[in-house]
């Protein structure tokens, strides 16, 4: 792992433009095990390792070329603290609102559903900065991203694309032009080395480089500064000729739960603990609902009563005389 240098990039106004497209969101969203509702927490908002690597690569390329870095993120206002940290590294930052502001919960789903639209939104938002020479992305977002955004971006920009990279650096090609040298993993431990002409869209794995930290002066300068917001563009991809929509990606699934083995040395005791064979139980109850709807109500009421359901989310029918009243 390379140690990150800690200096900032000082943007040269006319140098090459390196763009980092960042997907900033809750890195550890919670998923309701019963109904799959995803809850995002604004305190968990941050850069995924892949996005952090993309940003670091962008800063290094801009340094090598005396260029400037623009970092953009499509997202709600809760991403701004992270963008401010990015600004502290010397990048120009911009937030692109998408659709319904203030509703931070729906946006990620929307992004993942229409990555072509997202790519167009980004390209439109970047237009004032001029044509980018390199656009960097993380290879995939942690929250059910498909990794398709960079390809769409390359398509929209008419740029070369090199995806899933582990190594990326500037070179001069045989004709004396600036270009990129990249590596990506192949099966069986092989790697493929690519010469990428500019302009290019590259996505990188969260490996190999670590994002530098801002200097004290940089951090103080960025602190409290407002984050520029692009005017709401929300370009939606009209399904054009030759495009098709593959449908929404898979919903989140909660992780499987690892349960510890009971501690007793005696296998028989362990088995007893696991099965609860000798532990006094509340006796099971037989309920005989008349129809399926009533059965569902009884089940929901049971779950709510035992704290498994937030009863503000479910309307619970008045308590049926059920198992708690059993002798």
């Amino acid at each position: 792992m390379t140690t990150a240098p800690t200096t900032e990039v000082h943007p040269a106004p006319d140098g090459p433009l390196v763009v980092a497209c960042l997907r900033i969101g809750d890195l550890r969203p919670t998923v309701d095990p019963l109904d799959g509702t995803v809850t995002r927490d604004r305190l968990g908002v941050g850069l995924s390792p892949a996005d952090a690597a993309a940003l670091e690569h962008a800063l290094r390329l801009a340094e090598a070329w005396s260029g400037r870095v623009v970092a953009v993120c499509v997202g709600p206002e809760s991403v701004e603290p992270v963008l401010r940290d990015v600004a502290a590294l010397g990048a120009t930052v911009m937030r692109v609102p998408l659709g319904d502001e203030g509703d931070g919960h729906r946006y990620v789903g929307e992004l993942a559903e229409d990555e072509h639209g997202l790519a167009r939104t980004l390209v439109a938002a970047l237009a004032p900065f001029g044509a980018p020479d390199v656009v960097l992305c993380g290879d995939r977002s942690v929250d059910r991203g498909t990794g398709a955004l960079p390809a769409y971006l390359a398509h929209e920009l008419g740029a070369a694309q090199a995806l899933g990279l582990v190594v990326l650096g500037p070179v001069t090609d045989s004709a004396g032009r600036q270009a990129l040298l990249a590596e990506r993993r192949l099966d069986a431990g092989w790697r493929e080395r690519l010469n990428v002409p500019l302009p290019a869209v590259c996505s990188v794995e969260g490996a190999g480089v670590r994002l530098r930290r801002a200097s004290l002066a940089g951090a103080l300068a960025a602190e409290g500064e407002p984050v520029p917001v692009a005017r709401s563009l929300a370009v939606v991809a009209a399904p054009g000729p030759g495009s098709f929509h593959a449908g929404a990606p898979q919903p989140f699934r909660p992780r499987t739960r690892v349960l510890p083995a009971p501690h007793d040395d005696d296998p028989r005791l362990r088995l007893l603990t696991l099965t609860g064979a000798l532990v006094a139980h509340e006796p099971p109850t037989v309920v005989e609902p008349a129809d399926a709807a009533e059965a569902a109500d009884v089940l929901l009421a049971f779950l709510a009563r035992h704290g498994y359901l937030d009863d503000t989310r479910v309307t619970i029918p008045e308590r049926a005389a059920t198992e708690d009243d059993a002798p």
Binding site: V258, L259, P260, T273, V279, A280, H281, E282
Partner: peptide, 14 residues
């Protein structure tokens, strides 16, 4: 039963 619900029942998390 006199056992409190949950008590003694194996419901640990790792």
């Amino acid at each position: 039963s006199t056992t409190a619900p949950g008590a003694g029942r194996w419901d640990g998390i790792s």
